[in-house]
């Protein structure tokens, strides 16, 4: 158990996400033959994902260094393990209505493409904070999201981002002292 724990603890967060993806993919493939359960695919994968996180935490607790005074009742592993023990029956309990067909089936997907574009714009915007700073980045993000949501009025597309940048500078930066990133580009330009 300790070896498994050390294996998982030795990988970074991104790799953990890959592991989670693999588990979910296996779960999805495993559900294919069961026609009755297919309409609950999303819900079952959510349960599986949470259960996997619990299991991962459980394994990793075996890699914790035990402090010398650990004999006093508990260690850092006690509580995470306890929550995992609680999680197992509860997950089963949530799965039973799906097995019986009593649960409401997964709802139909909406426009995943649109959401994907907005999410990608959000991630790119956050990544660009470091380079072009918050102000330009958020202005561009606002324009992109407004455009994706079918806003085509030029005045809106200009006034909203510019207004937001001015508001956020004076309200957050000047009044509330929130040091929003100005980015390496501007910090170099401004010395």
């Amino acid at each position: 158990m300790a070896q498994i724990g050390r294996f998982f603890a030795g990988h970074n967060v991104l790799t953990q996400l890959v592991f989670l993806g693999v588990v979910l993919a296996i779960g999805w493939l495993g559900l294919r033959p069961f026609k009755k359960l297919r309409r609950y695919t999303g819900q079952i994968l959510v349960l599986l994902g949470i259960l996997w996180i619990g299991l991962l935490f459980y394994f990793v607790t075996y890699s914790f260094r035990v402090p010398r005074f650990a004999s006093v009742a508990t260690t850092g592993a006690t509580v995470p393990r306890f929550w995992f023990y609680v999680l197992i029956p509860i997950t089963l309990l949530a799965f039973i209505p799906m097995l019986k067909g009593h649960e409401v089936p997964d709802q139909k997907s909406g426009n995943i493409w649109r959401l994907g574009v907005v999410f990608a714009a959000l991630v790119l915007s956050l990544l660009s904070f470091r380079f072009i700073g918050y102000y330009i980045s958020s202005a561009v993000f606002l324009v992109v999201v407004m455009w994706v949501l079918d806003s085509r009025e030029k005045v809106e597309l200009i006034v909203v981002p510019v207004g937001w940048v001015i508001f956020s500078y004076f309200f957050f930066y000047r009044l509330l002292y929130v040091r929003l990133p100005i980015g390496t580009l501007f910090s170099r330009l401004l010395g």
Binding site: V60, P67, T74, G76, L87
Partner: peptide, 20 residues
């Protein structure tokens, strides 16, 4: 479970930080 991420409040054990 998510709340157990971080420093253990009694012994200071690092929990589920995965090197971050």
């Amino acid at each position: 479970l998510l709340n157990t991420i971080g420093m253990d409040p009694i012994a200071g054990t690092q929990r589920f930080t995965f090197g971050d």
